[in-house]
Design a binder for these strands. Structure first.
Lengths: 112, 112
DNA sequence: GAACTGTGTCACCCGTGACTGACACAACCG
DNA sequence: CGGTTGTGTCAGTCACGGGTGACACAGTTC
């Protein structure tokens, strides 16, 4: 005879996948060692490309590529300083970083 | 005449790249649409593989692969329930998720 | 026992993305 | 002006990882 199926939880096939584009985009940026290290180093203030390249042990054009990705995402800003216009200094956009963190909280934090 | 070089910031080539293995590992897991969606869906309680597969529009073996990655990272747990031993139910490990979020905070939050 | 459903494992294919090399541009110096 | 340094761009190459297909295993039903 069949078991009491009433206590077997029904399979829910109508689950809706939530919108996770933004957090995935943030995580994709952080999923690279060089980009995450750049963001970590910039926490102590602006640095130029050559400094970051030396710290990472990477070529400057490669670092420049990663900085472009971070810049397009708004996480960092580039500027030439008056005292040293030859080098380009990058600094974090703390507001954007906080917003990015919020996206990840939306996935990793318990339901509110 | 030469500019006053004393105001030109010296290039710091002695920067030390911080340890970012853990946050990169977390971000790598979240950098995939299916894995992030799984974590988001599991916020409302345990679900079996077939439910997750239906919600994602993916095949169950593919979802099982992603769940294995999440399981190895400790973010989810698998269990067979007494009322339905045929299916495997997955649930979030909230403590591990919180710990994972802390790793990302260490990169995205401003310096303390 | 056989048949079936749900899940897990693994080799394979293939697209995405990181690193490279060559080159171009910007800003300084002689 | 030409030379040098710092940075950016882009096509090419290659490794990594996600999806698939085939199969094995667990648990249930007949």
């Amino acid at each position: 005879m069949p078991a009491d199926t009433s206590i077997i939880p029904e399979v829910r096939l109508n689950l809706v996948a939530p919108d996770i584009e933004a957090p995935v985009a943030v995580a994709t940026l952080l999923a690279d060692r060089n980009r995450t290290t750049i963001l970590a180093i910039l926490r102590d203030g602006p640095h130029c490309v050559c400094e970051l390249a030396a710290a990472l042990g990477e070529r400057s054009n490669n670092v420049s590529n990663h900085l472009a990705r971070l810049r397009e995402a708004g996480l960092v800003r580039a500027s030439r300083m008056a005292a040293d216009t030859r080098r380009v200094y990058y600094e974090r956009d703390e507001a954007a970083c906080t917003a990015a963190l919020s996206q990840l909280k939306g996935v990793l934090e318990p339901i509110r």
